[in-house]
Design a protein around this nucleic acid. Structure first.
Length: 461
RNA sequence: GGCGCGAUGGCAGAGUGGUUAUGCAGCGGCCUGCAAAGCCGUGUACAUCGGUUCGAUUCCGGUUCGCGCCUCCA
């Protein structure tokens, strides 16, 4: 049975969906004003994996990952670039999809854009006003009154007094409590018309937190099973979502909260503000996207993940081993045999809060067994279980001979084959000096030759 | 300052109250014309100090160090 670590209780809990056999999951996605970095890659890959495993486990899943296409930074960036909000956000949404596709991240069932849900946000704010949980501040912003929501702080494990908003930051003077947050931002004259919506509280635009409450309830209902996102969203974003949704609806919002750990650089969180981030597309110039995915999946989703070229290279070597096994042993086209011992362990690992590190270890044991026995069934298990993780789906040669940057190098491949042919002739006439010279020459250009009973094969070093 | 998380072999990274994680790197062997790949073998790993226990890396407490959140952030 699947167990999930629930941030709300800080424990692993048996997963029981609200509707038997069905799961509804919402994940906070990207604010689209720039290219995605590796931290975003981790969220996308981690929850893609959760989605895949839920489906593999037989659940009918509805997966929503939102897009924030209206916020301060977007407005500022569009202004700097002299382009419309829509042009800017469309461009970065397209870029995000390219990156996600490359990493083998399947599209969620719904990817709602905040700007398409302003009506629903307004009706939610209206309900909060009716219930006395929201007020119009002196500056005409509509704010949520956190003191009126009893369990505020439960998700982040803090009390209101502990949070002490004044500790580190000057508080805007218009709020009744420093921790109150904006639901509806009153329009500023210097902002473009594109970010102005009419509302009962005057022209303006929505605050950040309200969009997720509105979109999730619209697409998944007022109560659903899993809500996910990066650890940094735990507070205040998810705390505020709970306050909004439970405040408006009067009942539990989400049963299981999941938060993935950070990607780090030199043991520090990778983030925009620290400026120590690597974009996905930059990393993909030097590493195969499947290596990046494998790198993410090799660690547990809640652990910190340190990024470095050396670690990516290590991941590449490891993945090479798996693909080498599939090259050495042709898998049968049988599906996964879930009763086979490796698969049983794989399932147990995944059911234990998505322990992909353990699941990947099982893959290596299958690779070893396939190499040892030459069993096509074992190779099929390897490929099949790898596929559950979104790995090992390619032809081994595509991975082993692939160039990182650019298109498949067909011409280079032909040249390499020609040299292998010449070396074969040299070997046949026992001219080992010539054969070794050719091999060394190829090695110098990053091509490794392997002589097998079926002939010579090559891969990139 | 408040709250929380973590410290595993050369590196990465799971896990467990008593028996092999796994991968990379290294070393020895087999295979090979030689290699490569693969296979076999190979590492007194669990921050530190106490406590509980027949027995702790695994449970409890202290200490040290690192990280995160408390502010936009995946």
């Amino acid at each position: 049975m699947l167990h999930i670590h629930n941030t709300l209780t800080r424990r692993k809990e048996a997963f029981v969906p609200i509707d038997p056999g069905k799961v509804r999951m919402y994940v906070c996605g990207m604010t689209v004003y720039d290219y995605c970095h590796l931290g975003h890659a981790r969220v996308m890959v981690v929850f893609d994996l959760v989605a895949r495993w839920l489906r593999a486990s037989g659940f009918k899943l509805t997966y929503v990952r939102n897009i924030t296409d209206i916020d301060d930074k977007i407005i500022r960036r569009a202004g700097e670039r002299g382009e419309s909000i829509r042009t800017l956000t469309d461009r970065f949404i397209a870029a995000m999809h390219e990156d996600a596709d490359a990493l083998g991240v399947l599209r969620p069932d719904h990817e709602p854009r905040a700007t398409e849900y302003v009506t629903q946000m307004q009706s939610l704010i209206g309900r909060l006003r009716e219930k006395g949980l929201a007020y119009v501040a002196g500056n005409r912003d509509v704010c949520y009154s956190v003191r009126k929501f009893d369990s505020y702080g439960r998700l982040s494990g803090k009390s209101l007094d502990e949070l002490r908003a004044g500790e580190r930051v000057e508080v805007a003077g218009d709020k009744q409590d420093p921790l109150d947050f904006v639901l509806w931002k009153h329009a500023r004259t210097d902002e473009p018309d594109e970010v102005k919506w009419a509302s009962p509280w005057g022209t303006g635009r929505p605050g950040w937190h309200i969009e997720c409450s509105a979109m999730s309830s619209d697409l998944l209902g007022e109560r659903f099973d899993i809500h996910g996102g990066g650890q940094d969203l735990q507070f205040p974003h998810h705390e505020n979502e709970i306050a909004q949704s439970e405040g408006a609806h009067g009942h539990t919002f989400v049963n299981y909260w999941m938060h993935n750990g950070f990607v780090r650089v030199d043991d520090e969180k990778m983030s925009k503000s620290l400026g120590n981030f690597f974009t996905i597309r930059d990393v993909l110039k030097r590493f195969d996207p499947e290596v990046v995915r494998f790198f993410i999946l090799r660690a547990h989703y809640r652990s910190p993940l340190n990024y470095s070229d050396a670690h990516l290279e290590d991941a590449r070597q490891a993945l090479t081993r798996l693909y080498t096994a599939l090259r050495n042993v042709e898998p049968s086209d049988a599906g996964i045999d879930w009763d086979e011992p490796h698969a049983v362990r794989f399932r147990a690992a995944m059911d234990d809060d998505f322990n992909t590190a353990e699941a990947v270890a099982v893959l290596f044991e299958l690779a070893n067994e396939a190499n040892r026995t030459g069993s096509a069934a074992t190779a099929a298990q390897l490929k099949g279980l790898g596929g559950v993780l979104g790995l090992l789906a390619r032809e081994p040669a595509s991975f082993l001979q692939g160039r990182i940057a650019g298109e498949p190098d067909e011409e280079g491949g032909v040249a390499i084959e020609a040299m292998i042919e010449r070396r074969a002739l040299a070997k046949k006439s026992k001219d080992y000096a010539e054969a070794d010279r050719i091999r060394a020459q190829l090695l110098a250009s990053g091509v490794v030759l392997e002589d097998t009973p079926q002939g010579t094969v090559w891969r990139r070093a």
